[in-house]
Design a protein around this nucleic acid. Structure first.
Lengths: 138, 138
DNA sequence: TTTGTTGCAAATCATTTGCAAGTTC
DNA sequence: GAACTTGCAAATGATTTGCAACAAA
């Protein structure tokens, strides 16, 4: 299935109206497969799509758990598809984000829920440091 | 040692000039011992201290690892003293943050550093869900 | 007395919103 | 046709900055 079909399918699954704007935004997130800012996504889209529309839809998508909003580090949020489980390694110098695949810490999540008396449904784990290039520069 | 002395000592340790503003800001963070926004800290201070001064100093303190900046969840950052190691449990409904004491995941940090080819010096772990009260309301 | 810090006001920048016109179901 | 989306432009709100006066070392 290509990115366009995948985008439409996902929109249908979560019960959102299928507009050309949404299909294009989501298709790009799927195709680019990274950690993108609203600006970066907008830049790839045909110019009839407003940045405001991008922001509004990213917000909806995130609320419906279609994408994750990553708000650590730099001043603006980054977005990624929510279909794989992984953690993040972030360079404090150049802000790049690398994915880190590792078994989910479900026992820790369970312990946190017990101790804090929360109903926990997800967790994130971020590592901060210097990437290889920035390491060399210092 | 009281909060005021502790604040002065910490400032000296990291080699910052000791101004009344800094002592008061840091003293309040120590005394209030929570997860505070710049606004909340500012509100507790005598009125001759500007919000801009609070922001600027929080930024310095965070860069020098005296405090942690927590930028997840809500629109504005929260700050906490950086002297204890713990993780966070966040309520997605009311935004409250609870601390969760748990042994640090050093082996995972090591694995992440190896895999990503980063020099990692710290990590954070956040659990998202609903606190007891918000759980009831739903 | 040199260098860093503050207050003030204005600027910035990411993100959100109101509303009328256009679309989807 | 009813309910939802969009574009546009303006608003918002957190955070930062320039600069002259002031304070710490």
């Amino acid at each position: 299935m290509d990115a366009e079909q995948a985008a439409k399918t996902k929109l249908k699954e979560i019960g959102m109206r299928i507009t050309p704007q949404r299909v294009l935004i989501l298709k790009n997130i799927i195709a680019m497969n990274g950690h993108l800012t609203a600006e970066e996504i907008h830049r790839e889209l045909p110019s009839f799509i407003t940045l405001a529309t991008v922001y509004n839809n990213l917000k909806y998508f995130a609320e419906l758990n279609l994408i994750n909003e990553l708000s650590f580090g730099s001043s603006c949020s980054k977005y990624e598809l929510a279909d794989t489980s992984h953690y993040h390694v972030i360079c404090e110098s150049c802000q790049q984000i690398a994915d880190f695949n590792y078994p989910l810490l479900n026992e820790v999540e369970y312990a946190a829920a017990q101790v804090a008396h929360f109903k926990v449904h997800r967790h994130t784990l971020e590592f901060y440091g210097l990437c290889q290039e920035c390491k060399k520069k210092k």
